[in-house]
Amino acid sequence: MPILQVKQLEKKFGTLEVLQGIDFSLDQGESLAIIGSSGSGKTTLLRCLNFLERPDGGTITVNGQLIFDASDPSTQHESDIRKKRLHFGLVFQNFNLFPQYTALQNVVLAPKLIARERSDFGANKKDILSEIEEKGRAILEQVGLSDKLNAYPHMLSGGQQQRVAIARALAMEPDILCFDEPTSALDPELTGEVLKVIRSLASRNTTMVIVTHEMDFARSVADRVIFMDEGAIVEQGHPEEVFGNPQKERTRQFLLRYSESS
């Protein structure tokens, strides 16, 4: 059974159809790269998965559980959506770290707030909080920032900020971790350190959906690639098939443009 199944997902902004019936599924431990030109709907797709946009049509199923059905309002209660979001993590293009908190505080803030909802929180408050703190340190170490625990975001480089953002998303232990062009806001010399972290997550079989413009990265890291254009999936398959032997003319043109510019 796939961990994520998306069926006929549609999204309109006014009369503009940004997503025109997206179908795909994702297996546990798989990393999926979504490529395509700007305005093809990649980011909107990620935002729909994270309920930052409400899809106008289609269904989203996680672990066999239908968590969103556009035709069934009972799957769209505001209070449930908050819980359902936790299936997904999202790393933003612009990091969106909380500026008034240190790297470690950024990572542990949400887990600590969620822990308050546990029934045993009152009794074991200290243990629970120190456990979260400990885990936060470990995750920051995992992304190579054990020496920046107490640094505020403005003291960090873009690459370091994005790594804190990845740690923050990981700390919530999402089923599926989504990346929205994680290196697009970075100077070229800083993209490497972020890609390295994502690569190591892939080697640990983290289930990921990565929207990216880094074609070489997508080709080497992803288990599967989706090429989107004008709100629809044009082609999907193993990276070697999509990059090496694209079947559709539009895919060929897109990849050609990229190889020319890089």
Binding site: R85, N94, A169
Partner: peptide, 21 residues
């Protein structure tokens, strides 16, 4: 910036938590 609200939202925070925290 709206990114601050969105970052809080995808981390499962309530609207009140996003405002105060």
């Amino acid at each position: 910036p709206s990114g601050q609200y969105e970052a809080g939202a995808v981390l499962g925070m309530t609207k009140a938590q996003i405002f105060f925290k």
